[in-house]
Amino acid sequence: MYQIIKQILKTGIKTETPPQADDSLRVREQEISAEILRVFGRALKIRHVDAGSCNGCELEIHAVNSAYYNIEGLGIGFVASPRHADMLLVTGPVSRHMETALKRTFDATPDPKLVVALGDCGCTGGLFGENYASCGKVSNVIPVDVEVPGCPPPPTAILQGILAAVSKRG
């Protein structure tokens, strides 16, 4: 126990200042009242859905949970069930074998809800595109509010996208 406490004290606080929302990432305006967005903005719960990615974007979603970015410190947390979620964070391309699962996850998420598509493949289909096995971008399957490009998008970009989805419209 002594060693653990010593290491924690030696490490100190690593969390950096969070980035601001990037409004240019928003692709859809939803009729969600400012009041709800205000509430979401203070306690947002996210369900991540990997709908067919190469697992690159997932590495950066993990990184967002590290002490440096401390997403929990912003009141944002990841939950295990879509029924507990306000937002789906979806990576792609959406494989056709995940199409049904993604739609069901979307349906299981209570309204009002937000969707952030992550990564070049989630935004455009990327290198995989659309084919016999791939539906391409996330918005081909479910409505998307914010798209965060990148291969993979770094943690700050992911945070900017998530914050854009819950920030008051300009």
Binding site: D50, G52, S53, P93, S95, H97, M98, A101, L127, F128, G129, N131, Y132, A133, S134
Partner: peptide, 21 residues
């Protein structure tokens, strides 16, 4: 098999150079 996205078929439409990506 849920993530099957046609990678091997996709390779066949790429050049040797682009395949690395």
């Amino acid at each position: 098999g849920y993530k099957h996205k046609g990678i091997e078929k996709r390779f066949e439409s790429l050049s040797l150079e682009d395949g690395a990506k």
